[in-house]
């Protein structure tokens, strides 16, 4: 349809992020839902949340969620308005920017958790 252009990338990334989010949602439901099986089971499962690769992966998940969310809104706008179709390219760049901002916010919040000796603030509001 729009081979190789922005629309193709938007579509491909939407599908890719969608599958990634679904996989994480399954993992997340099982890990948080394991509280049902008792505190010990939950804390055994939850230990992986502290591992560096998992913490880094979660920042990626946040980015994928944000991209899927903002590009999803772009799809809805394209489906129901004429200007959405007309400016779909600009809207895609806008959703990329918003997704990147959300991911940067997540990264900023996670820096002290990743490198406690370098970053000393505990919340995104400072302090």
């Amino acid at each position: 349809m729009y081979k190789g252009r922005e629309g193709q990338w938007a579509f491909f990334l939407h599908r890719l992020s969608g599958v990634a989010i679904l996989l994480y949602l399954i993992l997340h439901t099982v890990s948080i839902g394991s509280t049902m099986l008792g505190a010990e089971v939950y804390s055994a499962v939850h230990k992986i949340y502290e591992l560096m690769p998992f913490r880094l992966g979660l920042i990626g998940v946040a980015g994928a969620v944000a991209y899927h969310a903002f590009n999803g809104l772009r799809i809805v706008v394209m489906d129901f308005t004429d200007w959405g179709v007309k400016y779909q390219r600009q809207l895609w760049y806008a959703s990329l920017v918003f997704a990147a901002l959300f991911m940067l916010l997540t990264l900023y919040a996670n820096l002290p958790r990743l490198f406690p000796s370098v970053f000393t603030y505990t919340t995104i509001w400072g302090q």
């Binding site: 509280t35 949340y49 502290e50 979660l58 946040a62 969310a69 959300f102 919040a109 919340t123 995104i124």
Partner: peptide, 18 residues
């Protein structure tokens, strides 16, 4: 997005104990 902000950005995800 609000769920993520509340439970992962504002609070450390790994701090959610039983």
């Amino acid at each position: 997005l609000f769920h993520l902000f509340k439970n992962h950005i504002a609070v450390d995800e790994a701090s959610w104990d039983y």
